Amino acid sequence: MQIKSYEEKYRDQLIKLVLGVQQDEFGVAITLDDQPDLKDISNHYMNGLGHFWVAVQDDKVVGTIGVLFLENGNVAIRKLFTDAEYRGKEYQTGQKLLDTLEAFCIENGKKSIYLGTTDKFKAAHRFYEKNAYDEINKTDLPVDFHVLAVDSKFYQKNIV
Rank of each mutant, 00 (worst) to 15 (best):
G94C: 07
T64W: 01
A132K: 13
N137C: 08
G88K: 06
A103C: 06
R78D: 11
I65V: 15
K60M: 13
H125Q: 08
K122N: 11
I136F: 01
A123V: 13
R87I: 08
L70W: 08
G63P: 01
K89L: 14
L80S: 06
S152Y: 04
G66C: 01
G66W: 00
R78A: 12
G66I: 00
T93P: 03
G116N: 09
V61A: 12
K111V: 12
N158F: 10
D144R: 03
L141A: 00
F121H: 08
G94E: 05
K130D: 13
H125F: 02
Q156C: 11
V67T: 08
L98G: 02
F154I: 04
L148H: 10
S152E: 09
A103R: 14
K60D: 14
S152M: 01
A76H: 03
I106K: 15
K79Q: 14
K130F: 07
A123C: 07
N74D: 11
T82L: 05
G94L: 08
S152H: 06
T117G: 08
V75E: 09
N108Y: 10
D59C: 05
Y128V: 06
S152A: 05
N74V: 04
S112F: 04
K89T: 14
T139Q: 04
H146Y: 09
L148D: 11
E102P: 00
H125Y: 02
G109Y: 10
K110W: 02
L70P: 11
Q156E: 10
L80Q: 03
D140F: 10
F154S: 00
I113N: 01
G88A: 08
V62H: 05
V75C: 14
N72S: 13
K89N: 15
I136Y: 01
N74E: 06
K157L: 02
D99N: 15
L68M: 09
A103D: 15
I77V: 10
A103L: 14
Y128I: 07
I113M: 09
D59G: 06
T64K: 02
L70N: 09
S152F: 04
K110H: 03
H125C: 02
F69H: 11
D83G: 07
A132N: 13
D119P: 07
T118P: 10
Y86I: 07
A124N: 02
D151W: 02
R87K: 14
H146S: 10
L148I: 05
K110N: 04
D59Q: 09
H146P: 00
Y155A: 01
C105D: 11
E135P: 04
S112L: 01
A123K: 15
K110E: 08
V61P: 05
A103H: 14
